[in-house]
């Protein structure tokens, strides 16, 4: 360590080599420790917290971008929010997103990860995990556009596949049909996202001590039994976190809907994020868009607090 001491002054912002030479009272020294976190606090405060507070202010106004006129309208935008049938539909779509994502990306991925861990060799395990992860690495714009084409009635391969399987009567304009559009988007999202959660689950499963399985096997427990009484409980923390993260994500979904349907047909695939965008940026109703933002805030905040509560509880229990 003595060698490092003789090195020239380092360039990091948290650089303390000059300060350390000074005699400082412990209180001052503690205060100076702030320099490590100052940038993070500043940038997060300025660009993450402040706009979210400001959003509440904007949500109480109504503005006309062309004249630049801004009026205070109090809770008018929230009243409109409560009466807007599209908001209700969007909430339902976000909810469907959350539920189906939990089924596929949490429980489906958990089962898949267990299968991989159980039957694949070390080399194959890495290959499966990597292959399944590929869609998660790709931009949702690309996957969204890709599935937009896959769902197309004429050039799409989905309808072609259905016809080849003798299920031609199932084929339809998946994204153009109000009853299927949102589910077609959710399906794409599962295709894209399951690999990521599978990867996280395999990591969690690998942390389970092997002797637990050996002992279970001695007691004659089959694979399903082991899954139920060892793997599941031992990855409970991961599962809990994943559920909350998935729900939060489902209420922030935007990109795939924007690329694939832009909320259509007739707003049937609208989610809160796209409705906010459409109101704020194509109809220029920034105040109302901000009110939709507040709604998203309320939902994601509730999920965030649930996450906090869950991890706290787990930590106490452990």
């Amino acid at each position: 360590m003595a060698r490092t001491l003789s090195l020239p002054i380092d360039g990091a912002a948290g650089n303390g080599s000059v300060l350390s030479g000074l005699r400082l009272s412990p209180a001052a020294r503690r205060f100076l420790a702030w320099r490590w976190v100052a940038l993070a606090v500043l940038i997060v405060g300025w660009f993450v917290y402040y706009p979210i507070f400001d959003n509440f202010r904007v949500s109480m106004t109504s503005s006309d971008i062309f004249t630049g006129e801004v009026r205070n309208v109090g809770l008018e935008n929230y009243r409109r929010l409560a009466e807007d049938p599209v908001v209700l539909g969007a909430l339902a779509n976000n909810l469907a997103y959350a539920v189906l994502s939990i089924v596929f990306q949490v429980f489906g991925a958990f089962v898949l990860a267990s299968i991989i861990e159980d039957i694949a060799t070390r080399r194959m395990r890495n290959i499966w995990r990597a292959v399944y992860f590929i869609p998660s690495a790709i931009s949702t714009t690309v996957t969204g556009l890709l599935f937009y084409f896959i769902y197309q009635p004429d050039i799409g391969i989905l309808d072609g596949l259905l016809t080849a399987l003798g299920l031609g009567h199932w084929s339809r304009a998946w994204l153009g049909d109000a009853s299927t559009a949102i589910y077609a988007i959710i399906a794409m999202s599962q295709w894209q996202g399951f690999g990521y959660s599978t990867l996280l689950f395999t990591i969690a499963i690998q942390k389970i001590p092997r002797d637990l399985y050996d002992a279970a096997r001695m007691d004659g427990a089959g694979p399903l039994r082991q899954l139920w009484s060892i793997t599941l409980p031992m990855t409970r923390e991961m599962t809990g976190m994943m559920i909350i993260v998935t729900i939060t994500g489902a209420f922030q979904v935007f990109n795939e809907v924007m690329v694939m349907t832009a909320g259509g047909p007739n707003n049937s695939s609208q989610v809160l994020g796209t409705w906010l965008y459409q109101m704020g940026f194509s109809q220029n109703e920034m105040g109302y868009a901000a009110a939709i933002g507040s709604l998203i805030f309320a939902v994601t905040m509730a999920c965030g607090l649930a996450q906090l509560w869950y991890t706290r509880r787990r930590r106490v229990a452990a």
């Binding site: 979210i52 920034m286 805030f297 996450q307």
Partner: peptide, 16 residues
Amino acid sequence: FILGGMMLSPTVALVP
């Protein structure tokens, strides 16, 4: 404060 930023959605901050 810093970790709490994880809970805040970019969509909500968009308009401001």
